[in-house]
Deep mutational scan, measured.
Amino acid sequence: NITAAIYDEIQQEMKRAKVSQALFAKVAANKSQGWLCELLRWKENPSPENRTLWENLCTIRRFLNLPQHERDVIY
């Protein structure tokens, strides 16, 4: 289940792992930094009809659900 909290989790994970938006986007969703920036802007007004947005957030959720040491190896 995806909630608005995922946006904060993304920010916290980037700080914790000391990774850039570009690197996080690449490893978590195989996307660009610009894409992640755009995604983070949706926090203010996520559209329930935007299926692509929710699919991408689900992809990021799966990455964030990995154990921390696995995420660190991927970075």
Rank of each mutant, 00 (worst) to 15 (best):
residue 70 E to M: 05
residue 45 N to C: 02
residue 8 D to W: 12
residue 56 N to S: 04
residue 44 E to N: 05
residue 17 A to L: 10
residue 48 P to F: 03
residue 65 N to Y: 05
residue 31 K to E: 10
residue 22 A to Y: 15
residue 25 A to D: 03
residue 6 I to F: 03
residue 14 M to G: 03
residue 50 N to V: 07
residue 38 E to L: 04
residue 40 L to Y: 09
residue 60 I to C: 03
residue 55 E to H: 12
residue 53 L to Q: 04
residue 59 T to H: 05
residue 38 E to Y: 11
residue 63 F to K: 02
residue 27 V to A: 11
residue 9 E to I: 02
residue 50 N to W: 07
residue 60 I to R: 00
residue 43 K to G: 03
residue 25 A to G: 10
residue 44 E to I: 10
residue 38 E to V: 07
residue 49 E to S: 06
residue 46 P to I: 15
residue 4 A to C: 09
residue 61 R to H: 14
residue 46 P to L: 08
residue 29 A to R: 02
residue 42 W to H: 15
residue 24 F to Q: 00
residue 1 N to T: 14
residue 5 A to T: 15
residue 63 F to Y: 04
residue 51 R to T: 11
residue 10 I to E: 00
residue 67 P to W: 02
residue 32 S to A: 08
residue 70 E to H: 03
residue 30 N to I: 09
residue 3 T to V: 02
residue 41 R to G: 11
residue 30 N to W: 08
residue 61 R to Q: 05
residue 23 L to V: 05
residue 67 P to L: 03
residue 21 Q to I: 03
residue 40 L to H: 03
residue 16 R to M: 10
residue 8 D to E: 13
residue 59 T to A: 06
residue 58 C to P: 03
residue 61 R to E: 14
residue 54 W to E: 11
residue 41 R to L: 09
residue 24 F to P: 00
residue 46 P to H: 02
residue 36 L to G: 02
residue 20 S to C: 01
residue 41 R to Q: 14
residue 21 Q to P: 05
residue 22 A to K: 09
residue 41 R to W: 05
residue 26 K to G: 05
residue 4 A to H: 10
residue 30 N to T: 08
residue 22 A to N: 06
residue 72 D to A: 11
residue 44 E to K: 10
residue 16 R to S: 14
residue 25 A to Y: 05
residue 65 N to M: 05
residue 45 N to E: 12
residue 12 Q to D: 03
residue 37 C to G: 09
residue 37 C to S: 13
residue 9 E to K: 14
residue 46 P to R: 02
residue 43 K to E: 07
residue 37 C to P: 02
residue 4 A to K: 08
residue 65 N to W: 10
residue 15 K to E: 13
residue 42 W to Q: 13
residue 28 A to D: 02
residue 64 L to H: 02
residue 75 Y to G: 00
residue 6 I to S: 03
residue 23 L to C: 08
residue 48 P to A: 11
residue 10 I to V: 14
residue 7 Y to Q: 03
residue 65 N to K: 13
residue 41 R to C: 06
residue 49 E to G: 09
residue 8 D to M: 14
residue 32 S to F: 05
residue 59 T to N: 02
residue 19 V to K: 02
residue 4 A to D: 15
residue 14 M to H: 15
residue 58 C to L: 14
residue 67 P to M: 04
residue 38 E to C: 05
residue 56 N to Y: 13
residue 68 Q to T: 11
residue 45 N to K: 11
residue 40 L to C: 02
residue 7 Y to L: 08
residue 14 M to N: 02
residue 58 C to G: 11
residue 63 F to H: 12
residue 53 L to T: 07
residue 52 T to S: 13
residue 60 I to S: 01
residue 31 K to V: 08
residue 41 R to A: 04
residue 52 T to A: 08
residue 21 Q to T: 09
residue 38 E to A: 11
residue 55 E to K: 01
residue 73 V to Q: 06
residue 29 A to W: 04
residue 41 R to K: 13
residue 12 Q to P: 01
residue 51 R to K: 13
residue 25 A to V: 08
residue 63 F to Q: 01
residue 20 S to F: 06
residue 65 N to E: 09
residue 23 L to K: 09
residue 65 N to D: 15
residue 26 K to W: 07
residue 52 T to W: 09
residue 13 E to K: 00
residue 64 L to I: 13
residue 47 S to Y: 06
residue 26 K to F: 04
residue 13 E to Y: 00
residue 54 W to C: 05
residue 66 L to C: 07
residue 42 W to K: 13
residue 66 L to K: 12
